[in-house]
Design a protein around this nucleic acid. Structure first.
Length: 238
DNA sequence: TAGGCCATCTGGTCCT
DNA sequence: AGGACCAGATGGCCTA
């Protein structure tokens, strides 16, 4: 629903005074003034100024009917012009917002690409979808944490590694996501049998796994906190 | 051809 | 007030 004319007019007021992007289509202050004039013309009737001629009775004055008609014609033209200006104002803002939104999504995709680049990948170079990337990253972190935990328990590095990294993976992936069940079934394949990512205790192994930041599905008891803080971040910030 | 994934547009809401 | 964020809608592309 279009914004009330008064709102848009106040927008114009603000924009022209702050020197924002409106200059692209509001060429000068005169335009803005005309627009306000048009708004008052098309808006509710304002009380006549003290001392101003009473135009409501203009028809009683000889020869005033032509003037009245001319005023109406002008009002009509100005109104059309003001609506066109308001439309272009809204359009311009929308275009700018679209541009920002596009940029925002591009940044988000760049971050996802960066995340993909640090995750183990398939030899056939299958690109993970967005949801797959997030879920796999979640599991991958879990697996790394599990590695540390096992190492802390004194298991030989080799056995921990074997448990975490199936030999057929280069470097490691628990198995391709089943097309039928999306990434939710990651780790359900035979190739993933040895992977902790198929472990029932693995965070994404449950059927209805949903990520809840406030209620972590698991903790990292043996993950040094300073390690979390010194881990390099590969996600570029634009 | 249906379904999945994605990019983009859009309007609403929240935040600074 | 303006920008960031979000979710819904829409259309294009690809694949089984």
């Amino acid at each position: 629903m279009p914004a009330p004319l008064e709102t848009c007019i106040s927008d114009l007021d603000c924009a022209s005074s702050s020197g924002s992007d409106l200059s692209g289509f509001l060429t000068d202050e005169e335009d803005c003034a005309r627009l306000q004039q048009a708004a008052s013309a098309s808006g509710p009737p304002v009380p006549a100024r003290r001392g101003a001629p009473n135009i409501s009775r203009a028809s009683e004055v000889p020869g005033a009917q032509d003037d009245e008609q001319e005023r109406r014609r002008r009002r009509g033209r100005t109104r059309v012009r003001s609506e066109a200006l308001l439309h272009s104002l809204r359009r311009s803002r929308r275009v700018k917002a679209n541009d920002r939104e596009r940029n925002r999504m591009h940044n988000l995709n760049a971050a996802l690409d960066a995340l993909r680049s640090v995750l183990p990948s398939f030899p056939d170079d299958t690109k993970l979808t967005k949801i797959e990337t997030l879920r796999f990253a979640y599991n991958y972190i879990w697996a790394l944490a599990e590695t540390l935990r096992l190492a802390d328990q004194g298991l030989p590095a080799g056995s921990a590694r074997e448990r975490l990294l199936p030999p057929q993976c280069v470097p490691c992936l628990p198995g391709p996501p089943s097309p039928a069940s999306d990434a939710e079934s990651w780790g359900s394949g035979a190739a993933a049998a040895a992977s902790p990512l198929s472990d029932p205790s693995s965070p994404a192994a449950s059927e209805d796994f949903t990520y809840s930041p406030s209620e972590p599905a698991f903790s990292f008891p043996s993950l040094p906190k300073d390690l979390l803080h010194t881990t390099p971040c590969f996600i570029p910030y634009h």
